[in-house]
Amino acid sequence: RRRVRAILPYTKVPDTDEISFLKGDMFIVHNELEDGWMWVTNLRTDEQGLIVEDLVEEVGR
């Protein structure tokens, strides 16, 4: 599965499916959606939700 790492921290918008995360958090990407959004699991918190791909970088497989 594709893995990405947060290059900046992010605080979710209330009442959305987004998740908050810290710089350096690692994610497993489950689905890539329209407009640059991805459905992921945060490996640090085990939380699932939406993040925007502009805030992450690819991690070598």
Score class of each variant (00 low, 15 high):
32 E>Y: 12
50 L>D: 00
9 P>Q: 10
28 I>A: 11
11 T>N: 13
10 Y>H: 15
36 G>P: 04
5 R>L: 07
49 G>F: 03
32 E>P: 06
6 A>M: 03
19 I>F: 00
37 W>F: 13
21 F>P: 01
7 I>R: 11
16 T>S: 12
18 E>L: 06
52 V>M: 15
52 V>Q: 15
46 D>E: 15
21 F>L: 03
9 P>Y: 03
29 V>A: 04
21 F>C: 10
7 I>D: 00
16 T>Y: 00
57 E>L: 06
13 V>R: 15
5 R>I: 11
56 V>D: 01
14 P>A: 13
44 R>C: 05
35 D>E: 12
48 Q>V: 12
6 A>E: 02
59 V>E: 14
60 G>S: 11
51 I>N: 03
44 R>W: 00
8 L>M: 15
4 V>I: 08
61 R>K: 15
38 M>P: 02
11 T>I: 11
6 A>T: 02
23 K>N: 07
19 I>N: 00
12 K>N: 06
38 M>D: 02
31 N>Y: 11
30 H>N: 09
44 R>F: 04
54 D>C: 12
47 E>Y: 03
50 L>E: 05
1 R>D: 15
16 T>K: 04
18 E>G: 05
33 L>G: 10
15 D>M: 07
58 E>W: 10
11 T>M: 10
15 D>V: 04
1 R>W: 06
25 D>L: 02
55 L>I: 07
41 T>R: 10
12 K>G: 14
39 W>M: 10
48 Q>F: 09
16 T>D: 00
23 K>I: 09
38 M>F: 08
28 I>R: 07
43 L>Y: 06
35 D>Y: 07
1 R>T: 14
48 Q>Y: 10
56 V>Q: 02
19 I>V: 10
38 M>I: 11
27 F>P: 03
60 G>Q: 06
21 F>R: 02
56 V>G: 02
8 L>D: 09
34 E>M: 08
45 T>P: 00
51 I>E: 01
21 F>I: 04
6 A>P: 00
3 R>S: 09
52 V>N: 14
54 D>P: 08
59 V>D: 11
57 E>R: 08
57 E>V: 10
38 M>Q: 04
35 D>Q: 14
54 D>T: 14
22 L>M: 11
53 E>F: 06
24 G>S: 06
18 E>W: 00
48 Q>L: 07
60 G>T: 14
2 R>K: 14
20 S>F: 01
39 W>C: 08
44 R>Q: 06
56 V>A: 05
20 S>N: 09
28 I>C: 11
30 H>A: 05
34 E>L: 08
19 I>Q: 00
